[in-house]
Every structure is written in C-alpha cells, then in structure tokens.
C-alpha cells in the first residue's frame, strides 16, 4: 500500500464527493440555498434504484431511471417547499432543508427499514494492476462518470441557451425575470438537475458503503467541505476541491495515527474551518458583497 495507492483511492472517493458537491453548488448558485437535504434526496432515489434492481432491472437502467425520477422530486421540492420561504432569512431556509433531511430519512426508514442492503455496482468487479498500484474498474468508472458529468454540465452551461438562462437567473433573478425569462421554471430545473446529481452520487457510493438511510451523512460533510473549499458558486472549484479532499483524507487516514480510518471525517471539518476563516468565498469563488 504505497502513497500512490492512497492517491488513487482518494481520487475515486473524491469523484463521488464531487458529484454531490456539484449538486450543492448548482442549487446554491440558482437559489442561494445550501440544501442540507441534497444527500438524503439521493438516498431516497438510490433506494428506488435498489428496488428496481431487485425486481430484475439491470443496474445501469435502474440508476438512470432513478436519476430521471429524481428530476421531478427536485422540481417539486423547489416548487412546493423552498419557494414558499424565498426571501426569508438564512436561518429559516437552513431549518427547512434540515427538516427535509430528517423527514426523508424517516420516509426511507419507514419504507425500506434500517438494515443495510448491498447495492450492485455499475462496474465489473475487476482489478487492474498498473505498476504496483491496484486500480479497480469501479474506481476508474467513478472518475470517468464524474468527468462526463462535468463535461456535460460545462456544455449545458456554456453552449446552450438553456444554460445561459440558468446562469442569468443565478446571477440576477430580478433582471432575468424582467428580460422575460421564466425564472420559476429555471429554478425548478436547477433543483431537478441537482437532485439527479445527488442520486448519481448516492448510487456510486452505495456499493462501497451499503445502502442505509443515513449513508450520505458523512458524504454530505465531505461535499459541503468541497463546496466551501472551492467556493459555493464555482462548479470547477468544487470538483477540484472534492478530489483534493478525497486524496487528503485517505493520506491522512493512512499516515497520521491519530486520525486513522475512523476519524477521517475530521479532515474535511478542519479544512472547512480553515477556509471559512481565511477565505470565506473559497479558493475559486467570488467575494460576496452585502449591501446593508
């Protein structure tokens, strides 16, 4: 187990954190909300995917179907819950999303129970040896999926009219409305896309840590840390930060005795504290100017 092995493992974990971090950034850019329930929404849909696979649907189809179904879930959350609290202070919005977190946790527990379930991997269970480093197909797959998602998002945001409108709404909601954009629909679309990403993250990590109603809690902390580190409004920043965090926690876990495997979660927490104190806008983010 060399350091290189830790880096490879870290990149694989980091790409999953990156998917959820992207979802957080997407929602934050569009609506200024940090959605603490993002991971839990993913858990719900990952359970849906699990039910599909146990009904005999192939994994890939099940995951894609769950992602497609996540879209209306995200849309409904924005339309019927978040929008009602638009313009209220941050405390209320945080409480709303946190309430949604435990509500969804309870719903998942009530439907599927609290016993962990194995989740089939999207990728074949094979190991490739590259100069002393064992790389699983799953690890490569996670990275490839992430890169595909990033590329897809970049194309949507930078090359399509829809992406341009989304960026306009994120930048200035009122001006966008005045220039005739269907702001509400765009916000719903943003939440829908984020929900699909969250589901993808949950389905990617589920084979490793098993399906459990609370499986995304730790992932949420990693992804929050990544989003904060990269800047809550910078998708590229969030992805880079997530990969860095994935590598950092693996190396710290392997080489720093006090941390070990069980306290790895302290790494993103410490990183988050340091960043928020030193550079609250994150490394890639823009400074937020508040008018009093």
């Amino acid at each position: 187990m060399g350091a290189l092995q830790q880096v490879v493992d870290g990149l694989s974990a980091g790409s999953i954190y990156a998917a959820l971090a992207l979802a957080l950034v997407l929602v934050h850019r569009a609506t200024g909300v940090v959605n603490f329930a993002q991971g839990e929404m993913g858990v719900l849909m990952a359970y849906v995917a699990w039910s599909l696979t146990s009904a005999g649907v192939p994994v890939l189809v099940a995951v894609l179907a769950a992602m497609a179904l996540s879209f209306p879930l995200g849309v409904a959350t924005e339309r019927f819950l978040i929008r009602r609290f638009h313009g209220q202070d941050g405390l209320v919005i945080v409480v709303v999303t946190v309430g949604l977190l435990i509500l969804l946790n309870g719903i998942v527990g009530a439907i599927w129970g609290y016993v962990s379930k194995p989740f089939p991997s999207l990728f074949p269970n094979e190991v490739i040896r590259l100069g002393g480093v064992a790389v699983t197909v799953e690890q490569i797959g996670n990275l490839v999926v992430l890169l595909a998602v990033v590329a897809g998002l970049q194309i949507i945001f930078l090359r399509t009219r829809f992406g341009l409108s989304l960026r306009a709404v994120a930048d200035n909601r009122e001006s966008s409305a005045l220039s005739g954009l269907a702001v509400n629909r765009l916000l719903m679309a943003g939440w829908g896309m984020a929900a699909a990403l969250g589901t993808l993250a949950a389905c990617l990590i589920a084979p490793k840590i098993f399906l459990d109603p609370s499986m995304m809690n730790a992932v949420l902390v990693y992804s929050l840390a990544a989003a904060v580190l990269g800047g809550l409004d910078s998708p590229v920043g969030a992805v880079v930060a997530a990969l860095v965090i994935g590598v950092a926690e693996n190396i710290a876990g392997a080489y720093i005795d006090i941390i070990g495997t069980d306290l790895k979660i302290a790494v993103p927490l410490l990183l988050m504290v340091v960043v928020l104190l030193g550079r609250p806008q994150g490394i890639f983010g823009r400074r937020e100017v508040v008018r009093v």
Partner: peptide, 8 residues
C-alpha cells in the same frame, strides 16, 4: 430514528 419521519 423511526421517529424522524414525524419530527420532520
């Protein structure tokens, strides 16, 4: 944990 549904 089972109460979280009601709490939420």
């Amino acid at each position: 944990e089972k109460s979280s549904l009601i709490y939420g």
